[in-house]
Design a protein around this nucleic acid. Sequence first.
DNA 1: CGTCTTTCGCTACGCGTCGTAGCGTAACTG
DNA 2: CAGTTACGCTACGACGCGTAGCGAAAGACG
Lengths: 213, 213
Amino acid sequence: MTPPSPGSPPGTRTGRPRSAEADRAILDATRAALVELGWSKLTMGDVAARAGVAKTTLYRRWAGKNALVVDAVADLFDEHLELPDRGSLQADIEGVVLRFAALLDRPETKTALMAVVAESTRDEALRERIRSAIVERQKDLVLLGRERAQARGELPREEEPAAAARTADLIFDVIAGAVVHRTLVSAEPVDGEWARGFTALLIGGLAGSSASP
Amino acid sequence: MTPPSPGSPPGTRTGRPRSAEADRAILDATRAALVELGWSKLTMGDVAARAGVAKTTLYRRWAGKNALVVDAVADLFDEHLELPDRGSLQADIEGVVLRFAALLDRPETKTALMAVVAESTRDEALRERIRSAIVERQKDLVLLGRERAQARGELPREEEPAAAARTADLIFDVIAGAVVHRTLVSAEPVDGEWARGFTALLIGGLAGSSASP
DNA sequence: CGTCTTTCGCTACGCGTCGTAGCGTAACTG
DNA sequence: CAGTTACGCTACGACGCGTAGCGAAAGACG
C-alpha cells in the first residue's frame, strides 16, 4: 500500500517518480504569477496553466495556495545564506539589513510574505513551515554577525544560555521587524542611508549621539 | 441627480438616511467573524447574515472585504489614543509597547492586520487608508513620548526638521516592527519582561550593558 | 398632507475558483 | 513481463463573488 517493503532504502520507491522538472516549473510559475497578479488574485488553475501541468498535479504535491506560495518564496531565501565578514559590527549589521531588504524588495515576496504570515496566525503547521524555511535562516545570519562581534570583543558574551537565547531573539525581532515594517507598512525604501541610521540606533541606542555622518 | 442643489450644506441629503445602527452591527459582525473564522474564511455573505442586514447593504457602503476589514479593525485602534506620562523615557516606551501589543494580541487584529497590509502592497488607496486610520495614530503616541523625553532632557532635540522627521520615522519603524514581528512571526508573547528588555536595548543600544535586572 | 428621493431587504442570477473523482496513459522497478 | 506510481485530461458539485431588479420603508420638502 504505502512503502514497497519495510527495510528498503528510504527514498527509493517503486513506480513512476515525480518529475523534478515539474516541481521547478510550478514554483517558477508561482513566482511569476505572484509578480503579475499578487497574492489575492493568484489561482491554482492559473499556476498550473503557466507551468504546463495539470491542476491535479499541483494538488498532489501541495495542500493549497498557502503551502505552495511558502515553498515558492522560500526558494528565494535560499540564495543568500552567507554573510561576508566586513570587519566590524556596524558593517556586518548594515550588510544583513541590506540583504534582507533586497529580498523583501522583490514584488513576489512583498505580496506573499505578509499574506502567508497572516494565514499562519490560524495555522500552526503553516507557521512552523514559514519559521523553518524562511525565518530561521535569516536569524542564523544575525546570530553569525553577533558571534563575530563577540569574538572581536565588540559585544559582551552572555554565559547563561537562556539569557543569551532571549537576547538573540530580541535582536532578531528588532532587526527583521524594523526592515519589514519600513518596507511593507511605511512603504519607504531601505537604502544605505536608512541602514546606517538604523544600525547606529541599534548599536548606540536612543541615548547615543544622534546619527548624523 | 446627485446633490439636491449646489450650495446646500454638505452632508445633508434628501431621501432616507443610512442607518447608523446598521453600520455598527456590520462592523461588530465583521470583528466577530474575524475571531471565529479568520481573514481567509470570512465571507461577505456571512457578515451580512450575522449583522442582520442584506448583502447588498454591505456593498453599498464598502467596496469589498479589504475596505470593510480595515474599518472594522481601525475601530479598535480608536480606543487607546492617550499615553499617560509615566515620568521617564523608559517607562513611557514600555507603556506604548505594551499598549500596542495588547491591540495586536486580539485575535481579530492578528489575522486581519497582516492580511490587509499584504493586500496594500498592490493597492495604493488601501495602504493610505491603513496609514491614516491605524498606523499614523500609533505613530503619534511614539512622537508624544519622544517629545516628553526631549522636554525632560533625556533625549537631544534635533533642530533640522527633515532630520528630526527621519529619526522619528526610524524610531517608529523599530518599535512597531519589533512588536509586530515578535507577536506575529515569532509568535511569542510581548509581556512586561520582553518590553523591559526591548526598551533597554532601544535606549542603551547593543553597546550598552546587557539588560538583566 | 402628498411627493420626491434614497435606502433597505429580498430574490435571483452569471461568473469564476475550489478541490475532487474517474479514466486512460506514461514512466520506472523488479 | 507484471506491478506500482505519477501524469494529463475532463467533468463535476459546491461555494463565494458582485450585481440587477423589485416593492416597501424612512426621512426631506413644499
